[in-house]
Design a protein around this nucleic acid. Sequence first.
DNA 1: GTCTATACTGAGATAGAC
DNA 2: GTCTATCTCAGTATAGAC
Lengths: 205, 205
Amino acid sequence: MTRDKILDTAERLIAEQGFAGTSLRQIIAEAGVNLAAVHYHFGSKEELLDNVILRKVTAVNQRREELLRSYEREAEPEPVGVEKILAAFFEPMIETGTRNPQFIRLMGRMIGEGLIASIVEKHFLPTTMRFVAALGRALPAVPETELHWRVQFMFGALSQAVCGWDILPPAMQNHRNGPDFRLTMRRLMAFLSAGLKAPATQEVQ
Amino acid sequence: MTRDKILDTAERLIAEQGFAGTSLRQIIAEAGVNLAAVHYHFGSKEELLDNVILRKVTAVNQRREELLRSYEREAEPEPVGVEKILAAFFEPMIETGTRNPQFIRLMGRMIGEGLIASIVEKHFLPTTMRFVAALGRALPAVPETELHWRVQFMFGALSQAVCGWDILPPAMQNHRNGPDFRLTMRRLMAFLSAGLKAPATQEVQ
DNA sequence: GTCTATACTGAGATAGAC
DNA sequence: GTCTATCTCAGTATAGAC
């Protein structure tokens, strides 16, 4: 199917080179299809990206919410702890990413390239809000605005973890795929867990 | 001077719209110069960016290292604490950013757009390494590789703090400039301080 | 409905006249 | 140092073959 060939090739190339760094002409050349087919099936380069993301992220987000719900049932009537909430958020991503490293780079690109607010909004925001609410219950001492900022920081750290600067020492490069990817993610979770639980900032100047 | 007109206009437009989102043709139109003048003075769009960054970041990095040195002298022979190290890193940026909000967005773009490793490397790496060394002394329990990762997470959080997604609630948008920018940075520093000081991750699976 | 061929506009880059 | 003209390649749009 032409449509699937385009999606597969686009996913691979965008993960490798970024969205801006991948041209439609490169995608169609490697997929062996015609340029206009992209616009017939998707309408524009942005909407192609939208569909690439959609295919991969929906299952991960469902799994995330599922896990969170099950942790909430276990903990009831207490709120779920921060570590558990982070586990519900990261584990589905780690599982998918261990099998398919490209997926992870793609996710990081989405946050990092700062591209296309509408796509981020559509595919990340609903699940994110669900997790912000859970974190709010786990951290009653952190005011809502500050919690929102901390989640924002969290996404930034995640983005740099999975596809930031390529000037890392080689020892760190290796930790981006293979079994060490799990270790990097556990390091990230430890970092975030501590950051999220930090005492609230005083508003006084 | 033509060269300065190009630099001023490029700085403003790139801060507002990002690097990829700003065309040379837009820059030269607003600066009132010729397209070829850009290539004459800078060689390429990337090298123009390089010079825009250079002009602004050099002073900030010098101030950062100065502050760090002075804190180190105060603390001697003890290592400087994490909060002090973060203050040395962030305060010069906050001062510059409070006077010139564009500068901050420009910094965030550099990290976030993941652009041009060579530029990041040239302008950020030397000072960053200086601070990594100081953090290593402040946090002897954190192994070197994990500390490197935590610094990587730190840059990601910083990037999202100053110019991440534009889908933030309006209440957060305001905290990107004006006096509330200081508050956001203090929140970031509290978050990072806790994250950096987290117990080291066990390497066992 | 699906896909091909081709043309259009705007991007960064470059050679050469002045 | 500066500017004109031009090159290549990007994303996009459309007409029409099957």
